[in-house]
Design a protein around this nucleic acid. Structure first.
Lengths: 191, 191, 191, 191
DNA sequence: GATGAATGAGAGTTCATTCAT
DNA sequence: CATGAATGAACTCTCATTCAT
């Protein structure tokens, strides 16, 4: 009754899928995964409930897709890990860490909310380990080269500090982002 | 007229209430508030569903009681705020921050999970503001006295770092707690 | 531990039973039987929940006792049915009908509420039939003697009218009771 | 974009909503509002419990819809109130009062049950006052014109009588409806 | 006689998911 | 591709009833 060309359909599929993902991200971030109903997502996306199940197997599948996308996007932020990291690598990583949060705060909110929940823990840790672990070693080398007493401790301290700052940037609208960024760089670079 | 066990009843009530609170805290921390059913809490506490409603008005009331207790316990950790803070005040606060997490990780997990969700935001921020804000000012003075270029930025950097470390301690069982604590103190004290 | 004499106990039992019945009547009348909880009755009577079950087998048993008492009280209002009814009999019955309502409006409210419900229908109709039916025949005779065209119709009309007035007296606080009573008597007596 | 059965859906919705309303009316009338479970209504309507909540916000909303419908239907029965009522107006109202009961006894049962309960009192009295009060004044005028000693008393007597008869017609299957109707008219008309 | 902690069946309600159209 | 009526399991919560004390 409503024939479309194959190409048109493909485009529509991609657009709709993306619309659903973006809408769901917003809703999940705002209310939390469990408190968000599929109905609400459908309403906010101006589509029907049923259509969501045309693109995703379940509500949980939808969440997994979102998380997967976020993690992919986060991984891209890592500097190349094939060479020994220098100051500019670390500076780049610091900058990217801020940018990731500021690009999309809903995304960041959701990520922090999920960190504390067991529901996607496995998925997240699996993805993280793949890329994060080698980079952690690199950062440890970086502090070793810089002659720090305890490179392993420093590495953990570095990541903890960065994530703490990200947390505050995400949830505190009045956070003095640039001031703290400057301090961060003074602490870890050029010393 | 012919009172029976009024004292015994009081003891029973106290113990049961505490049992419910402790069990609910565990379950909420593990699965998140919305994903935890009252049924599951009752099962884990080996009591009936109905009994929970004998002690708490609703699931949300139960959460509020837990959060309230946690916040009370957290507030005690703050050093006195009536004098200008010195190194030993700050060191005390750092130590207490670690202790608070290590005392009860379920409690810490729940607290981080709730921070990201808006469920009990009001209750938490209200309590926090009362004690946290004056202490934040004190810490700013501390960095001012220490002749830092940007005391406000440093203050935020300090709290962010501390919370980032707390986050990692809470969720990473392999975190090198003592190493990072030593680094933390080197960073913010003595200089 | 709290010994009492046999006589004391008997008196206490009677008083407590009556207290429960009176309190339950009030609560049932106000909220309806199903919406009234045993807890509320116990609270309003300043006794414990458990005590009610010491005197009555169940909530429904409590209701049945109340209804039974009300019906007994109502039955007493009927004039003697062994003689042919005359004007003074009927006038007496009209007066008693008003008095029954005005004596205790909660009781009247409950009775009307229950009329429409199936829960105590059987109990009420059984009791009613025993005393009411012979009196209905008497009233029919009364209208026959008065040479009415349709004594049976008149009898039904008489009882319907009386119950309609009772209904309004019960639920309308502004009802002109005396005026209507006068009209009632003019309609059915001395003609 | 490819609308399918928007008209069919509307028809289905109308029919289902009506089915639910009719079934709920029957159940409420038989057992009373509080004693009727949503489950039972669903069973009797051969639908799932959940579907009811697709059409009505709550059990109470369902009741309000039913009452609203009944009151609308009842209001239509009133004769026009813009002119001074004469015998034919009053006769029409008497006839309509009978018809309203005989049309649907479940409806009448529910209405009497609710009168005695405070559940939807507000809704009912608000609607009633709008149409009933002016009509009551009209009836008072009617008795004034007829030179009755106490028009106000008569008016109340008239409505009480009518409601008493309605009550008996509703609950007594053997009530001599036509006989009493004839008597009613003889009492209030022609004189 | 009197208490109230405890139970568990069942209430109203929500919501992820299915499927006919 | 798209809809939304329909389902039913699972949720939060209530309450009549029991029983150790």
């Amino acid at each position: 009754m409503c024939p479309k060309t194959v190409v048109q359909n493909k485009i529509i599929r991609e657009e709709k899928k993306d619309l659903i993902l973006r809408t769901a991200l917003k809703v999940f971030a705002q209310e939390g995964y469990h408190a968000s109903s599929v109905n609400k997502i459908a309403d906010k996306a101006n589509i029907s409930k049923g259509l969501i199940y045309n693109y995703f197997e379940s509500k949980e599948d939808l969440l997994n897709n979102i998380v997967s996308n976020i993690m992919d996007r986060y991984m891209e932020k890592y500097p190349p890990i094939d060479s020994i990291p220098n100051d500019s690598h670390i500076e780049y990583f610091i900058d990217q860490s801020f940018e990731f949060i500021l690009e999309d705060k809903a995304r960041a909110k959701l990520l922090f909310a999920l960190t504390a929940q067991s529901i996607v823990m496995d998925l997240m840790t699996k993805i993280t380990m793949q890329k994060a672990e080698p980079f952690m070693n690199n950062v440890m080398n970086f502090f070793e080269i810089k002659k720090y007493d305890d490179p392993e401790g420093m590495m953990h301290y570095f990541f903890s500090t960065l994530e703490g700052v990200q947390l505050h940037v995400t949830f505190n609208p009045l956070y003095p982002i640039d001031k703290v960024k400057k301090i961060l760089k003074k602490q870890f670079l050029k010393s």
